[in-house]
Every structure is written in structure tokens, then in C-alpha cells.
Design a binder for these strands. Structure first.
Lengths: 333, 333
DNA sequence: CTGAAAGCGCTTACAG
DNA sequence: CTGAAAGCGCTTACAG
């Protein structure tokens, strides 16, 4: 039913080869022949079958993308950045998650083996780095959007976790805050260590080392931020600022402060990390270190597709800097 | 380099046909032959090339999914529901957005023509319903996740906007709220009309018709909720409840109430719609009509894949009911 | 139970 | 400038 290259060839009175040539602009074709073929193509509304083209060419013009879950608040930004680039390069994006655990990874692995895509974009599902590394070693082009500070042995795109945390510290110091509380992410993540290091070093350099009991390990949830602040208030630990490793836990901190009757930012200034839309809607709006999520997704896609087109991959990780978005939670007017 | 069916056939001393048969479990094959072939397959780690299989079979085993944008707060849930089903059925999901406008739609259209996927899941980008309808008319299997109350001329999955709004009204009435304010979505959306109808009818039936000046058209943003409440307070309109057509505008309403010194829920009870994670993190936590977003995505994927497997599509839209999540903004303890 | 051959819809040397 | 033929890696009648 759908029309094929044979239909076009027959109607135009030429061979498939010639049709293919005008389709791909390869080789010399007589002007008049080419015009005739083109006329038939538009006339019939012919579009080459992607599967057939790809089989013949030995590639799919599809990139796979593997992410841990689609419901995380910042995943949409990364995805959108990647999709925008993939689309504009006329590639397709095949999406995988490992939401269903091992079963998901098995399905994913089978698609890898079946060569369903030419290259892979990945926001690493926890615990799969070795597997991804192996895929890369076996020849699958891979670019990682490194949200965890892994710095893996293959191309990746990351942000300046350390410098971002430093900028938060500098901002709080500038506002005269001398006793910050830090609510971190899980300690096993590189990004947590980087953000902690950047922040504490900046304070130490200002002659105000952050005592260990002011570093509370969290897990990036609203609840962990709330619980940490509540507990330290109960313990009568004195602090005039909170630096949370993401916006969600910062929002939790804001709530605990409000519940305890502390004024933000007068009594306690609060800074988050990510700068998601929610940062603009907290009460008061949250100062936050902006992660360039969409840009990271886009940069990873660009690097991968460039590589598929023959360009070398950047060897050191691509680094896209954070920036500080100042809002009322640290005293912006 | 990658090994093919020919490698397996040669090594096992049989024809490609036989290998194909044991691969697909079709036709009779001698036990011992089959075992030998299977041994070679695992030995070589052979996996059939998906493109080749699909070309030979005339289908892709991929479904396309078109969404307006990936950064909307509820899109991740719909996507996750769809991806879970698609993966478990061993299909692939090719993702498209129209984030880049006409150019995006052109790219998408070319993938449709190139038969890059067997069927389409769509959360309709505004203004593309006619185009999608045309695709469906031309024979592309399509299932719509109908978030706008379109009730289109092809299979779709929707929720109970009207009943959901009614449940919000019933809940507020039960709490003794007699003068509600409604912050709606854009009037051109069917879902806005349905939610408005359900809510106002329930109040009218209770002998408390909602006056037109208490129906404020919004646009689903935080700001519209805030602005609406602020303006009505300035105008000294008297109200003891707010029903917002989504959680974001409800959060904006909460903020305006707090800024004006109104207590929630004592002075004003607030109900949102969607029941996104943010509803649990507002101050106070927000009572909300839960949209079964993930279930909607999953149901749409199930219907589509079932159809591709030969099952008939459900003719009337699949309807997945809302439910009411009660939190402190209406007085839960 | 098994295989040779044609076919899926293209591309690409190779020959003219 | 153009075409016949082989090939991409499978599946599927058809024949035995």
C-alpha cells in the first residue's frame, strides 16, 4: 500500500538507482531526469522508508537515552534539552528508564544488542556505571549527563558543583552569615562531596570553618531538609543560614523554619541548589544555585551526534557552569 | 563485525531458515538440531538485528509519542506510565516534542511518513488536533491522552474532570464553605469547562449558586492564582474557599492568602487539581483532586499496543477516575 | 524436519 | 549520465 522507490522509478521511467541518486544528491544526474523524478516524488508524496534506508546504510539515525526515572522534578529539563538537539539533527530519540528494575535493564540490554540505536545518552541509573562503561568499551558511543559527580572513563557533561557551592558560600558570607548549616545529598554521590567541599572551603578560607555537626546528610527530599532544621533547632544549635544541596530539601528547611517562627532571611538565610521552577514559588522565594540542566542535555546530545557524524568526542568532560539566582530567601529585594 | 544469522547458521551447520525457526519458535525443528543452534546462539552471544527483523516483518515494534513539552510538571508521570508499559511489552518508545514549533512538527511529520513507528501515543500539542485526526484517518493507529477534554474522533484516555470537580465541591460543602472562589484554566479547554460545570452545578444543587464574579479565568500558572486572590481581596469580595483548576495556581492562591494575613483553612479553605508532589509541600499542604496521570499514560500505551497486536481499540474513551486527596488546606488534621 | 529462493525497501560499488 | 546486480540481515512461502 505505501508507495516505494520502485513505484517512483517505474512512474518516472528510470531505475531505482537513479531515484536513489536524486533522493540523496549523490552522483551526477541529468537535470531533466532529476526534475522528472522529483516531480514524481512530490506527486506521489513519496518518502523513503526509514527502516530500509537504515538497514542499507548500516545505521539507525536513532539515539537511545537511558534515565533512572522520568518523574524526578529536573529530568524534564535534561530530556527537553536532549530532544531539542536530537530532533533538529533529524535523529530520533528512543527512551528507556529503569523504573521497573532489573527487568527494565534486561529490556534495555536487549535493545542495545539488537542495535536499535547508534549511540547512547545516559543519566546514570544508580549502580549501572560499570555496565555503561562496558558498553562504551565494546564500541557503543556513549555520552553521560553526569549528575552525580562520577567523572567516568568516557565522555560526559557535567556542571561546576564545587564552584556553584562556592558561589553560594560567597553570597552568604557577603550577606554577613557566619554560621551556616549544610543539608547535603547522599554522601556516596560525587556531587555531594563536591558541593560540600566547595562550600566548606570557602567558609574556611574566610576564617569560619564549618563544624562537623553543622553538616547534616540528607537524601534530596523535602522531608530531609525539614527534619534536619527541626532537629538542629531542637538541639539549640545556632545558625544563621542554610545551604541545602537541592531545592526540594531547601523548601523543607524553609517550612521547618517557618513552623519554628524563624524569619527568613532576617534570622536565617536559605540557599538551594538546582533552581527549579519551585524555587520561585516558595515562601519566600528561594535563592538557588542554578544547574544548567537543559544545556547539559543539549550539550550531551550535540557531542554524541557530532561523534556519530565523525567528529571526535571531547576528551575531558564538557563542563557547563552553574550560576547563582538570588531571591528573597537571602534578602534580595 | 557484529555477528549475524549467517554466522550462526554456518557454525551450526544449518540454513538461515532453520536458525530463524528456532529463534522464533515457528515450525517444527528437530530437538537435537534446535539444541545445537541454541548452543551456538548463546555461545556467540547472537542477538538478531532489530532493523533487519523489522524490515522483513513490515513493522518496527516501536511506538511514537508526541507531547507538547517535557518540562511541564505533570508530563513526567504520563511519560513514565507509557514507558513502563511500552518497555514491558518489548516495544521501544520514540519521543517527540513540538518544543521548537513548526520545525518540530515538520520533523515529526517526516518520521511519520518514513514509517519510523507502528503507532502513536499523543498528549496533544495545542492546535494539532486536526493533523492528528488526519493521521488517524489515514490509518496510523493513534491513542490520545486527553488532558484537555477534547473527546476527539479517535481512541483516547481521559479522566473525570466533572466528577473530580464535584468531589471538590462536595468536600468544601461538607466543610461548611458556602462562598467559594474558582480560579479556572483557560476557557478554551474542555477540561476547564468540565471542571467549572461540575463544581458550579454541585454548589447550585446545594442551593448556593456560584456568582459569575467568583469565577476567575486563569492560565494554570502560580501567578494567575496569586493575582486572582489578591484582586478579589482588594475588591473586598467575600469568600471562604478557593477551588483552583490546578495545583500551581492553588499554590499561588495560598501565597496571596498568606500575604494578606488570611488563615488557611480557618478563614479560607483551598483545593487544587492534579495532586502533584508539590501539593504535599505547600504551606499548609494542599487538598487536591488527583489526576491519575501515570495510569492514563499506561492505559493509553496498553490500548495502543493491544491494538497493534490485533485487539480492537476501545471505542468510547477510556475513563480513569479522579480521587480526592485531603490535606490540611481544607482542615485535615 | 530442512533448505533454496524470493522478498522487505533501500544503497552502493561496478560497468558501461 | 544511467542501470543491473549484489548486499544490508532478517522472514516466509514453497518444495521436498
Amino acid at each position: 500500500m505505501p508507495i516505494t522507490i520502485v513505484d517512483v522509478a517505474t512512474r518516472a521511467g528510470v531505475s531505482k538507482t537513479t531515484v536513489s541518486r536524486v533522493l540523496n544528491g549523490k552522483g551526477e544526474v541529468d537535470r531533466r531526469t532529476a526534475d522528472r523524478v522529483r516531480a514524481v516524488i512530490t506527486d506521489l508524496g513519496y518518502v523513503p522508508n526509514a527502516r530500509a534506508v537504515n538497514l542499507a546504510r548500516g545505521r539507525t539515525r536513532v539515539v537511545g537515552m537511558l534515565v533512572p526515572a522520568l518523574t524526578w522534578p529536573w529530568m524534564g529539563e535534561v530530556l527537553q534539552g536532549a530532544v531539542d538537539v536530537v530532533e533538529s539533527e533529524a535523529y530520533g530519540l528512543l527512551l528507556f528508564t529503569c523504573n521497573r528494575g532489573d527487568e527494565s535493564m534486561r529490556r534495555f540490554a536487549s535493545q542495545v544488542s539488537a542495535r536499535s540505536f547508534d549511540g547512547l545518552l545516559v543519566v546514570e541509573p544508580e549502580g549501572t556505571l560499570d555496565y555503561i562503561t562496558e558498553l562504551h568499551r565494546r564500541g557503543l558511543p556513549v555520552v553521560l549527563v553526569d549528575d552525580r559527580g562520577h567523572q567516568p572513563g568516557f565522555p560526559s557533561v557535567r556542571t561546576t558543583n564545587e564552584a556553584g557551592a562556592r558561589s553560594a558560600a560567597a553570597h552568604l558570607l557577603h550577606r554577613g552569615r557566619r554560621r551556616p548549616l549544610v543539608v547535603t545529598g547522599p554522601r556516596r554521590f560525587g556531587c555531594t562531596r563536591e558541593r560540600t567541599a566547595g562550600f566548606t572551603e570557602a567558609y574556611a578560607e574566610a576564617g569560619l570553618p564549618v563544624a562537623p555537626d553543622r553538616l547534616v546528610e540528607g537524601d534530596f527530599t523535602f522531608e530531609c531538609g525539614r527534619a534536619a532544621v527541626r532537629r538542629l533547632l531542637t538541639d539549640r544549635v545556632d545558625f544563621d543560614a542554610v545551604f541545602a544541596h537541592n531545592d526540594l530539601s531547601a523548601a523543607g528547611a524553609l517550612q521547618a523554619l517557618r513552623d519554628a517562627g524563624r524569619r527568613v532571611p532576617t534570622d536565617v538565610a536559605v540557599v538551594g541548589f538546582d533552581d527549579l521552577p519551585l524555587a520561585g514559588h516558595t515562601h519566600p522565594p528561594l535563592t538557588s544555585v542554578r544547574q544548567p540542566l537543559r544545556e547539559m542535555g543539549a550539550a550531551a546530545a550535540r557531542a554524541l551526534i557530532g561523534h556519530l557524524a565523525g567528529k571526535p568526542l571531547p576528551d575531558p568532560p564538557t563542563v557547563i557552569p552553574t550560576s547563582l539566582t538570588v531571591r528573597a530567601s537571602t534578602g534580595a529585594t
